[in-house]
């Protein structure tokens, strides 16, 4: 099974030690820079730097080669079109830009643990915490990436099963098992997340300030429960931490 983010390897390289926000910012800045710059020499320079960064992260050879070969093919085709139109500078510029961005993206993926990315997504999502808790968004991001290869695998197995039964062209024979198994996988995954206590109360790295706020809130809640328990009909779950 291929995992879209299975590129990460724990290593002791400068990029591994850099914070996730810096690497994402670097990727964004580089992307903007290569789009803005039309000069082929600058593009080649940026491409060389990105390739060096990628090599410095010591990424897994096979996965990286596959990704880079694919990019080279696309770059070659794009260049061919520009060369055919007689614009060699544009051909060099576009190809170098594409290779640079993909190489840097691979370098970021190879040097950033998924958990670090998850924390970054949670941090970035803080402004919309009223609508969606940052931890939930981070978890959704991780689950999305987790689900993609699994659903692809389910699809492939369902297609093989349909073929084995002679239903090569029957869409229902493909869609029904794919859908039901995907739903089944989602339910199992949901139970596993629940069992591991992920996304539940306490499943976040709290800052000192936030912890103090929570502690103040819970002590206020306890006081309310204590005072309520002295009134008739009290004790109906106030202050409980129901899941």
């Amino acid at each position: 099974m291929i995992t879209p983010t299975g590129l990460f390897r724990a290593r002791e390289t400068p990029l591994h030690h850099a914070p996730a926000w810096f690497k994402v910012l670097l990727l964004l800045a580089t992307t903007v820079a290569v789009i803005m710059l039309d000069d082929p020499v600058s593009s080649l320079g940026i491409m060389a730097a990105c390739l060096l960064l990628l090599v410095s992260t010591q990424p897994p050879a096979r996965t990286t080669t596959v990704a880079m070969v694919g990019t080279l093919v696309v770059a070659a085709l794009t260049s061919a079109i520009h060369l055919w139109r007689g614009d060699w500078a544009r051909a060099v510029d576009v190809s170098a830009d594409l290779i640079a961005v993909v190489a840097l993206a691979l370098a970021v993926a190879a040097s950033t643990a998924m958990t670090a990315m998850l924390d970054l997504v949670s941090t970035l999502a803080r402004p919309i915490r009223v609508i969606l808790p940052p931890e939930t968004l981070g978890l959704m991001f991780a689950l999305l990436l987790r689900a993609l290869p699994e659903v692809a695998q389910i699809y492939l197995e369902s297609r093989q099963a349909a073929r084995a039964r002679g239903f090569d062209r029957n869409l229902r024979a493909l869609l029904y098992p794919t859908t039901t198994r995907t739903v089944g996988f989602a339910l199992e995954l949901g139970q596993a997340i629940h069992a591991r206590g992920i996304g539940e109360e306490g499943d976040q790295i709290e800052s000192g300030k936030r912890r103090a706020r929570r502690s103040r809130r819970s002590s206020a809640g306890r006081d309310a429960t204590v005072s309520a328990s002295h009134t008739p009909g009290a004790g109906t779950g106030i202050g409980s931490d129901e899941a």
């Binding site: 643990a113 991780a142 591991r196 306490g202 976040q204």
Partner: peptide, 20 residues
């Protein structure tokens, strides 16, 4: 176990448990 494992690599999955 496939349904229980969330993260892409082994170490990241154990790190997820330890996040708390």
């Amino acid at each position: 176990p496939s349904a229980q494992l969330i993260m892409p690599t082994a170490i990241e999955d154990v790190m997820l448990s330890l996040r708390r």
